[in-house]
């Protein structure tokens, strides 16, 4: 009983941690993997999602409805950003990094001016239950389930829909895709908008567990970007899942033993060591492994 509840609690910790990494990074990963753009305004897009959900909740909208609302609002904002600014930076990775950073500054400071330094937060939906000596939050279990569902949904979107096929084609060879009649401009707008929307969705989901403030986006910078760096760009969904799990396995024990700050320090060190061993990230390693398996007829 005791070992059982200890194992369950450990799994729960790992699961919440991995879900957090995945949610923090998913929007960023879609945009990087499909457009080769690193969106430094990602944290601020999450902040925008959190603000949307918080304001809507305070206005009386049920929390469950504010999440899709945040997705839509931030996705629309993302589409505008792409049309006006980001599209001029395709093929200029460092330029895109710098300009999205400028956007993040304006968004953070603008929010501070508009909404003030902080906003009353919303309380975590659902209760908690205990098993053995440990207690589990229902909300975090729901977040784990949502993460798994998102992974499945994204896999389906990219492997089974026309949009997914066109997006992957445009990523690999934009000129060829264009000559086959793919409207690459529209595909990029959709992809950026989807990535932004997912950031908004994650922001809304994480909002009840966080302090709502203009610079709350900053706290997602380290986990989100480390997840992406470790995951690499070869196969974004596999990379994100692999890297979120691995990072959770690093952070959870260190964080439990020494506190959250040292957990994050351990993350940075893990990232440095992992890129030293695998400069192209986990996903490149996974990709090779899959290739070998499929060649030898095992998959």
């Amino acid at each position: 009983m005791e070992t059982q509840s200890l194992v369950l609690s450990l799994l729960y910790q790992l699961g919440t941690s991995a879900a957090f990494f995945f949610l923090a990074a998913v929007g960023l990963i879609i945009i990087l993997g499909m457009m080769n753009i690193i969106n430094l305004a990602h944290g601020e897009l999450m902040m925008m999602g959190a603000y949307t959900a918080t304001i809507a909740t305070h206005a009386g909208v049920p929390f469950a409805l504010t999440v899709p609302l945040a997705f839509l609002v931030v996705a629309a904002f993302g589409a505008v950003l792409e049309r006006l600014i980001v599209r001029r930076f395709y093929g200029r990775q460092l330029g895109a990094l710098v300009v999205t950073w400028g956007i993040s500054l304006v968004m953070g400071q603008g929010t501070l001016l508009f909404f003030g330094p902080f906003m009353p937060s919303i309380k975590i939906p659902g209760g908690s239950f205990s098993y053995g000596d440990f207690s589990f939050s229902e909300y975090w279990l729901v977040l784990i389930a949502i993460s798994v569902a998102l992974i499945a949904l994204l896999w389906w979107l990219y492997n089974r829909t026309t949009y997914g096929l066109q997006a992957r084609a445009a990523m690999q060879d934009a000129t060829m895709a264009k000559s086959l009649g793919v409207r690459t401009g529209r595909v990029y707008t959709l992809t950026f908008s989807l990535g932004a929307g997912l950031a908004g969705l994650s922001g809304a989901l994480i909002a009840p567990t966080a302090t709502i403030a203009p610079f709350m986006g900053q706290q997602f910078v380290a986990p989100a970007f480390i997840t992406v760096v470790v995951g690499g760009a070869a196969n974004v969904i596999a990379g994100a899942v692999g890297s979120a799990t691995l990072l959770a396995a690093v952070k959870t024990p260190v964080g439990m033993a020494f506190g959250a700050f040292y957990g994050t320090v351990a993350l940075l060190f893990a990232a440095l060591v992992i890129i030293r061993i695998m400069p192209d990230g986990i996903s490149a390693r996974l990709q090779r492994w899959f290739d070998r398996r499929s060649r030898s007829g095992l998959l």
Partner: peptide
């Protein structure tokens, strides 16, 4: 760590940013 790993160009700004935030 970053240069001897020959990491891709976009990783360095990200990791330097994380370092300063930490």
């Amino acid at each position: 760590f970053v240069f001897y790993a020959r990491v891709q160009k976009w990783i360095i700004p990200i990791l330097t940013l994380v370092l300063t935030l930490l």
